[in-house]
Design a protein around this nucleic acid. Structure first.
Length: 966
RNA sequence: GCGGAGAUAGCCAAGCGGUCAACGGCGAAGGCCUCAAGAGCCUUUCUCACAGGAGUUCAAGGGUUCAAAUCCCUUUCUCCGCACCA
């Protein structure tokens, strides 16, 4: 072995050896299979340390399972479908400053190469080559024969088949949905295209149609609480605002006349209705008129209110003073004002009767009134009005129930009513949906103010279907989710998932087979592609896209039809077809999908939905594992803005094994890992050290003779670490696995060497190297090449060997460590320079009592009198009859505070203290730099300070003689 | 707002009813080794203590228990997702 640890040399060597031997290119055999996948990367940049974490976890499990004897398949592909790559090409083509800067600096792309990446296909080609090189350079055990890109023509055939099938199965429906829209670009606005208002969401208001009395003109009111229509006492119109009377044409050609604000008119232009202005109407004109509440045909008055914002909703607001503090306040403010200018002369106080429609604990009939009074809100401008509103809305929503005022809806929970009522109102044509941003304005990068647009005739995957969801729940029930606490999260997300638009206009991808003007949305085409890895291997052997017919996929993936018929139709030989089908049967389903936590509410969900829709139960995924993100020195990474650390750069700087080790040990499961320069430097030192230790052990001459206690101790301790590591890996706890397989073993090794151990080193290394192989495969191969046969990647993974567990030696060492610690502590506290130290072993009578107490603890009869009566039968104890009760009392208190299990484990064979101390005398003298004498507390030769009294089982007494000159 | 995760010593982070003053790592201090540096090794790192001890801790407050960092309740704070974007 080379003296110096040179990661680069070792890693290149073994990567080549793996590649040449094809050991990561599995074929069907008699072994049990294990199919593990991670989400393929999206290629709008180089792979970074975030990918590194997810992919390395996948690789560790793949390697672990392989060493456990499974036939493991770990494949990889590339995702390029969608808009970001197209967008990136455009940005590069026009030499966008930030893009060039980020991709040059953070993605480490030479400027001359970068400027050439001005077309999507060039980007795909460049990054897929880089990504494969990166993943090879970090030593992933990937079967590269199965690699593909989502725009490959054969893959498109696969997607085409999938979507045709989904449509046949009734999973695809047509509909429309609201999106953020830039009228200038005439396009939906994505998050990164937004200049202002990124956090804005689209809210769906219910638009209730009040009819102006005496004509058919409609005054629509937008509300988030449609149930309150039962409590409307009046409408609010802003007298300052000029409204418009418009003609509204529905898709079914029916026409209505509405009066709304000008803003609302413009927004309506982007809905599924056609609108045109008839004339302007001032707010003042409307005030004082009456409208009919469509829900109960009551007549309500229109009143003036300056708070009505024409930019929000329809510009006309319904007033529910019983349940809306603002409405109550506005009304109260009007009580004393003169409204005769609007032709209103009646006394509002007596005319307008509040209508209660929600019953909620903690409030009486009119929650709004009560809240306003409790908080002492003065008027509409008072800031506490907002607080009152929040309190009322929240309580009503969560605990409220509708009263008899609402007729057939009485008794319904407020939290459930919105969907039901809106549906009913729309059906009877007295309401409509009106979309609005949650906050204004939303500005596109081009500077234009965005609107909500309804994209019409869009294709949807109907994830909201209860039957489909039911299948997914069933699938989840059978699955392992790691960490298990996320199981609930998955179920919640399934519940929450609604229909999802699955077609888009822009980007790379596969056309919707039955409506070619649409492209299949990029998450929809990444749901069952794990099965395609199995087919991909055969496609590489020369099958053309034209041969990949629907019948082909139906046969190989679903087992429908027969090989001979498909062979006739496609020209693919029957044997090939059968062997593809066999491969599918063998490898599928996916045994584990390991992924970052960001993919839970989208990709992983769709992964489950599509599998349950397309495949039979036995092909449904078996497990999902989730991991967290990686940050850089506490800062969030960003592909497009930086900071970013690429996999390439990390491997180049530190080497594959160090990078792998570091990222795996940095954190567990869903917790985020923070990449720190300083920490990875120490990881480097650790591996250098491991290498050196291994080299030294290998160079050791073969030792003979029996193992000593300390050797047995080392090997015994090793078994616990092996067991822990295996357990951690089963649960995908890479951090815990490394803590045990590396740091804790290293610490044992330090103690072992300090104690002068040597004989067990080769055996330790033999196990240790294999234990670490999944994490740091290259360095382990290198060491293994001096230890064992073949590749360590194929060597058996260590399992705990119970025959090597040696409780006695572990207890002996614990005893010794404790004794040493005690001496050191005394020395520290007293600051004595010792001349000689006498250690007194436990007297026989205490051992006897200890033993009796332990036994009684196990039978739950640990009482003073029981111990005493039993102990006093012993002659030695009797001799110490005076001291005995005190010791018994002490031991009882101690044991009361421990569990039975602990007591049991401590009860193991009583150790021979004298022997342990005598064996370790040389060691102790050396450590403490003075003479050590061992005496028994039964009859000490020399005990000037009566220290021997302190001796107890597992804890000797100590007397330190001070050096005279100090 | 909804849903999820979390708050542990200077920092990262384990523990999730008794073996806990609390694994492990980093950082810091002292010592050994060395011509020296680095590496390595040992010790210390909540407070107090010249005999192996004692005291106060695990976001805050309350509770259950013989026993709580660990279980229950309340409060405060942090992070993540909430979609048509991969």
């Amino acid at each position: 072995m080379n003296i110096k640890y040179d990661p680069c040399v070792i890693e290149n060597k073994w990567q080549k050896a793996w590649d040449d031997s094809g050991i990561f290119q599995p074929e069907i055999d008699l072994r049990e299979k294990f199919f593990i996948t991670v989400p393929y990367p999206y290629l709008n940049g180089n792979l970074h340390v975030g990918h590194t974490r997810t992919f390395t976890i996948g690789d560790v499990i793949a390697r672990y399972k392989r060493m456990q004897g499974y036939n493991v398949l770990y494949p990889m592909g590339f995702h390029v479908t969608g808009t970001p790559i197209v967008g990136l090409a455009e940005l590069i083509a026009k030499k966008d400053k930030q893009t060039m800067e980020v991709y040059h600096r953070f993605h480490s792309i030479p400027l001359n190469v970068l400027s050439g990446l001005d077309e999507p296909l060039k980007i795909v080609k460049y990054f897929s080559r880089e990504a494969e090189a990166d993943m090879r350079s970090i030593g992933y055990s990937i079967d590269w024969r199965r690699r593909f890109t989502t725009t490959d023509p054969p893959y498109k055939q696969f997607i085409t088949w999938q979507f045709n099938l989904l449509r046949e199965l009734g999973c695809v429906v047509k509909g429309s949905h609201p999106v953020r829209w830039c009228p200038n670009d005439d396009n939906p606005v994505e998050d990164h295209d937004i200049l202002k208002g990124e956090d804005t969401t689209i809210i769906d208001y219910t638009l209730v149609k009040f009819k102006l009395e005496g004509c058919s003109i409609i005054l629509p009111c937008a509300t988030l609480r449609p149930e309150t229509v039962f409590g409307v006492t009046n409408l609010w119109v802003n007298p300052e605002v000029i409204h418009v009377q418009i003609e509204v044409t529905y898709p079914d050609k029916t026409c209505e006349e509405w009066i709304v604000s000008r803003d609302a008119y413009e927004k309506l232009g982007f809905t599924d209705k056609r609108v045109s202005v008839i004339k302007e109407v001032s707010g003042v004109e409307l005030i004082g008129k009456h409208v009919t509440n469509p829900i109960n045909n009551t007549s309500v008055l229109i009143l003036p209110a300056s708070f009505v914002n024409p930019g929000n909703g329809s510009g006309i607001v319904m007033s529910v003073p019983a349940h809306a503090p603002y409405d109550y306040l506005a009304l109260r403010d009007l009580y004393d004002s003169n409204l005769s200018q609007y032709g209103i002369n009646e006394d509002l106080k007596s005319k307008i009767k509040f209508i209660s429609l929600i019953k909620v604990p903690g409030f009486g009939k009119y929650p709004a009134v009560e809240a306003v009074e409790q908080l002492g809100v003065k008027n509409q401008q008072d800031l506490r009005a907002e607080e009152a509103t929040k309190i009322v809305y929240r309580r009503e929503f969560h605990n409220g129930e509708l009263t008899d005022t609402t007729g057939k809806y009485a008794g319904t929970k407020v939290s459930k009513i919105k969907d039901i009522l809106t549906y009913d109102l729309i059906n009877s044509r007295i309401a409509d949906i009106f979309y609005e941003f949650s906050s204004q304005p939303v500005i596109c990068r081009c500077g234009t103010r965005c609107v909500v647009n309804i994209v019409k005739n869009q294709w949807f995957l109907n994830y909201s279907s209860p039957e489909w969801k039911e299948k997914v729940y069933r699938c989840l029930k059978m699955m392992d989710i790691l960490p298990p606490e996320l199981h609930v999260e998955f179920e919640n997300k399934v519940d929450w998932l609604k229909d999802k638009a699955c077609a888009r206009r822009k980007g790379l991808g596969t056309n919707l087979p039955w409506d070619k003007q649409w492209l299949i949305e990029s998450l929809g085409d990444s749901t069952i592609y794990m099965s395609y890895y199995i087919i991909a291997k055969f496609i590489a052997d020369g099958i053309t896209p034209e041969q990949l017919t629907e019948a082909f996929f139906n046969y190989v993936l679903l087992g429908k039809g027969s090989a001979s018929t498909v062979s006739e139709n496609t020209g693919i030989t029957k044997e090939t077809l059968e062997s593809i089908r066999n491969d599918i049967n063998y490898w599928y389903p996916v045994d584990m999908r390991s992924s970052g936590k960001d993919l839970i509410p989208n990709h992983l969900l769709f992964f489950l939905f599509h599998h349950t829709a397309i495949f039979q139960k036995d092909m449904w995924p078996r497990a999902i594992a989730i991991n967290g993100f990686v940050s850089l020195e506490h800062k969030k990474m960003s592909k497009s803005k930086g900071p970013l650390l690429t996999m390439k750069k990390a491997v180049k700087e530190y080497g594959a094994d160090i990078t792998r080790f570091y990222i795996l040990a940095a954190s567990e499961h869903t917790q985020d890992a923070d990449w720190r320069e300083n920490d990875i430097e120490t990881t480097k030192k650790q591996l250098v050290r491991f290498y050196r230790t291994a080299r030294e052990i290998i160079a050791l001459p073969t030792s003979t003779g029996d193992l000593n206690s300390i050797d047995r101790w080392l090997l015994s301790r090793l078994q616990h670490k092996v067991a822990e590591t295996n357990d951690a890996l089963q649960k995908l706890q890479t951090r815990r696995a490394l803590q045990n397989s590396f740091y804790l073993i290293l610490n044992d090794l330090k103690w072992y060497e300090r104690r002068g151990g040597k004989k067990a080193l080769p055996q330790l290394l033999h196990t240790w190297t294999r234990l670490l192989a999944p994490f740091t495969p290259h360095i382990c191969e290198e060491i293994w090449s001096h230890l064992g046969e073949g590749f360590i990647s194929q060597a058996p993974y260590p399992a705990p060997d119970s025959t090597l567990v040696d409780v006695d030696s572990e207890q002996a060492e614990e005893y010794l460590q404790k004794a040493l610690e005690d001496v050191e502590e005394i020395l520290r506290v007293t600051r004595i320079t010792p001349q000689k130290i006498i250690i007194y072993t436990t007297p026989q009578w205490k051992k006897t009592i200890h033993k009796i107490a332990m036994e009684l603890k196990l039978t739950e009869t640990l009482e003073m009198k029981n111990v005493m009566s039993e102990a006093m039968k012993d002659y030695e104890v009797k001799k110490h009859g005076k001291e005995a009760p005190k010791y018994v009392q002490k031991i009882i208190t101690e044991l009361k505070n421990t569990t039975k299990e602990t007591a049991k484990s401590k009860r193991a064979k009583p150790i021979i203290e004298k022997e342990i101390l005598s064996d370790a005398r040389g060691f102790l003298e050396c450590e403490l730099n003075c003479k050590i004498e061992i005496q028994s507390a039964d009859k000490p030769n020399y005990d000037p300070q009566q220290k021997s009294r302190h001796a107890e089982p597992m804890r000797p007494a100590i007397y330190i003689m001070e050096s005279v000159e100090d």
